[in-house]
Design a protein around this nucleic acid. Structure first.
Ligand code: SF4
Ligand code: SF4
Lengths: 138, 138
DNA sequence: ACTAAAAAGGATAAAAATGGTCCTAAAGGC
DNA sequence: GCCTTTAGGACCATTTTTATCCTTTTTAGT
């Protein structure tokens, strides 16, 4: 439970593989999808979201593909995950306080908030550059 | 994303309300369900799981109901959540390492592990007794 | 014994989320 | 004009979530 979906996992794997390319290099979606072992049409949707958010540049037509739009060291794991999964929160009442009218006086609520803050602190502190450098994902 | 389901939320709210009773007191499912604002038949399933796990005692028949089987101070939030949601893990590869053959050399994997450990540390440190005492959930 | 109360357990089902696929359009290089 | 490649939208199967309902079992009280 409370697990990343495939979409989130693919987003992370996909952008790490893109970050492995020489910076500025335009890579084919089909190549990234194959290397990262992700269904190509699914990864296409994810990279489209990344393009809208300014994480990657996309180029159409012959010779086209995707490249990182910013240095990998400026993209955090949190940003990537939240781009496709929405706000990171362990309970409904955390991203939307009015999801529960008890939140003002609820001690459980404050526990979930602590969990969220710890998770965000970790994910904010990890960049795609580190992950691309340290990981040896096939 | 990565949010507790209703079942998990109801489990926590339900056992907190039970813990509000004088210790040893046998409460009706219907009363707990109404106080905690949980569909009664749904809460029934949850409390059945709790009974199997030894968190609560159940008594059938007239005069029956549920009571805590252990002092609320010995039941942690983690135990309650894991009872109904399974292992707390931010990604599939955390509870089952062989869910991904990359886990041995994957830097992302170690990040998710850190997130998990932080979350478990927090949830292990909170007991139902504290929550019942500090919360003012209607 | 009889009856009412209450949980146990199993079957069922609607709704939502997940995990994709497919097709057409648009854009760019030759 | 043709080929390549991404963009965008529609669509769909499966799984998970979120319950509800019904029958059975157990118990207390009379
Ligand atoms: S009862 Fe507390 S923890 Fe549960 S949803 Fe409401 S505010 Fe959040
Ligand atoms: S690639 Fe890494 S983070 Fe993703 S599932 Fe595999 S081990 Fe876990």
């Amino acid at each position: 439970m409370m697990e990343l979906t495939r979409k989130g996992e693919y987003a992370v794997r996909g952008i790490i593989h893109l970050a492995r390319q020489p910076y500025g290099n335009v890579a084919l979606l089909s190549d990234i999808a194959e290397e990262a072992d992700i269904p190509q049409t699914f990864l296409a949707k994810i990279f489209q979201q990344f393009a809208k958010l300014g994480f990657v540049n996309s180029y159409r037509g012959s010779g086209g593909g995707f490249s990182l739009a910013r240095p990998a060291s400026t993209i955090t794991l949190r940003q990537v995950v939240e781009a496709v999964e929405g706000p990171i929160a362990p309970n409904r009442c955390i991203p939307e306080a009015d999801a529960c009218q008890r939140s003002a006086t609820c001690a459980v609520h404050t526990v979930w908030r602590r969990v969220q803050l710890q998770a965000l602190e970790i994910l904010d502190g990890v960049t795609i550059e580190e992950l691309a450098r340290e990981s040896n994902i096939q």
